[in-house]
């Protein structure tokens, strides 16, 4: 089982992910934790229940702290975490910045869930073989 954290200010992202990954969640392949701001995400990561999170999907454009800032902090403080950036802004500047801060993937909205699912499952596979 792999625990994923999704950070996005749009609360509708939760039912969307839950439905899209229904089977995987039901089969116990993955578990999702939703945070609706970068600050929430950092708070959650500080709590004890965050220990098993391995992958974070984060939006970039959010009120308060933005996703790139979050990414920078995550890569500094929690370097073991894998971070995928998911954003509507596919401009070169943000992309370069995300790469510089160490993003593991850069996906654009509208989210192509087929692709995302493949990526996530591949990642989970890798984790498992790595742990085994």
């Amino acid at each position: 089982m792999m625990k994923i954290m999704i950070v996005d200010d749009e609360t509708d992202i939760e039912p969307l992910f839950r439905q899209r990954f229904r089977r995987e969640i039901r089969d116990g392949l993955i578990e999702c934790q939703f945070c609706f701001s970068a600050e929430d995400a950092l708070n959650y990561l500080n709590s004890a229940s965050a220990a098993d999170i391995v992958l974070i999907l984060s939006d970039i454009n959010m009120p308060g702290m933005n996703g790139l800032e979050l990414l920078r902090i995550l890569k500094e403080k929690y370097s073991h975490l894998t971070v995928f950036m998911v954003t509507a802004y596919d401009d070169e500047e943000k992309y370069q910045k995300a790469l510089a801060y160490g993003a593991d993937r850069y996906l654009t909205k509208p989210i192509d869930f087929e692709k995302l699912k493949t990526e996530v499952l591949e990642f989970s596979q890798k984790m498992r073989s790595h742990n085994a």
Partner: peptide
Amino acid sequence: AHEIKNPLNFVNNFSELSIDL
């Protein structure tokens, strides 16, 4: 355009899900 992309993301994905449902 960027602002519209966000709601579109939901429209497209939720509608796709609804087709499956």
